[in-house]
Amino acid sequence: MIDFARKSLLDNPYLPQQCRIVASTPQTDDTMLFRVRLEDDRLAESFSHMPGQFVQVTVMGSGECPISIASSPTRHGFIDLCIRKAGRVTDAFHNLGQNALFGLRGPYGNGYPVEVMEGNSLLIVAGGIGMAPLRSLLWYALDHRSRFKDVILMYGARDQEDFLFKGELLSLQGRDDVKTLLVVEKDPDNSWEGDVGFVTELFDDVDLDPETTYAAICGPPVMYKNVIDKLLDCGFSKGRILMSLERKMKCGIGKCMHCSVGFKYTCIDGPIFTYWDAINMREII
């Protein structure tokens, strides 16, 4: 029986907090990186999350949608949200403008299991907008560099116009404590200085120890399949392959069922699942 005297019955998990856009940096035609901060200073300073978690964002008059957190918990006081115009709410978010207020609740989801990943090498494989949640993990690892063995980033975008966090990621190529492999699929005017091709082709350039490496993947469905095949070929155990999934999260707290896959809720059991989980959850990708 439920204990109706429980105090937590009064905390309303559906109530968003006011949050402000403090900066915005264009990334592509339809994608913008927004730096936001909760209005209540106490909440802004105490906000903490795990890489891979997401928040629910409300634009008054348009509705609410889930957005993954693109900043690392090692950087305090602000949250980065990389938002692509993909529907009613995200379109409206882009129209809000500098300094505008919106609603935010969260963080939600399990996030990456960083405690078990620490002490191992980290391979990050991202495609397109999939770099957004992985940017949080990337900077977590770089800010806690001594806690990881090798850190390898593989990122592929359709072309230079679709390349996210370009300056930031290109500058990582100058660091010797992270191996940064960046590709574009198409380079019609030959202006890209790096490799042209698919992320899967980057596996030839790295030496991976599947026993001591965790691979974190996020990207379009077709990329998952090809990258997972590569990792399995390398000898990765299914539990060391971590995927970030997208579903229609309406409540974010495991009630509304919209994000259910089998007996898992993407919002509270995920959005980070191992490939082993995925095999046991049909219709997952």
Binding site: M1, L9, K255
Partner: peptide, 18 residues
């Protein structure tokens, strides 16, 4: 009751339930 409790408690459900 099990669905609406757990890690996150659905306040709307339980305020009526009690």
């Amino acid at each position: 009751d099990r669905v609406f409790s757990g890690k996150y408690v659905d306040t709307y459900y339980f305020r009526r339930r009690k």
